[in-house]
Amino acid sequence: MANETPVSIKVNGKEEQRDVEPRLLLAHFLREDLGLTGTHIGCDTTQCGACTVLIDGKSVKACTVFAVQADGSEVTTIEGVGAEGELHPVQEGFWEEHGLQCGYCTPGMIMSGIHLLNENKNPSEQEIREGISGNFCRCTGYQHIVNAIQYAAKKG
């Protein structure tokens, strides 16, 4: 493809170097180029949050960032937060409290939960609801997701 630009992005602690089309969205870069398919895409208007990842520690919708913009950054995706046996407390909360049904919004929701707890160790229920207001879930009615984040907050 014409017009390719080199990028170097540290993804889940691993330096990744690729030549990409400038128009390649970070979400597609993660999914297609790196095979990190835990980052999902649920809308095309920067609202649903299914594609939420952390860029340099901040939650961001990866469908609204070009891969070239993330050049030189550190990106954390759901694949980078914890693994079975050593789950992140937010992941654990989602499991314990039935914070997911179809699982599609879950990775983004977890990333938002992690970002929220990084900024606010002990959020109120309203703060949790606001903290995940950039993430849509059609299955759960959010109540168990709130419980999941409360679980993680309690665990610290």
Partner: peptide
């Protein structure tokens, strides 16, 4: 009972059609 489906889904390891 907590769900058996969840370990794969909370780790982003589920395989949806676009995967």
């Amino acid at each position: 009972i907590k769900r058996r489906e969840d370990p794969r889904l909370i780790q982003g390891l589920g395989t949806y059609v676009d995967d």
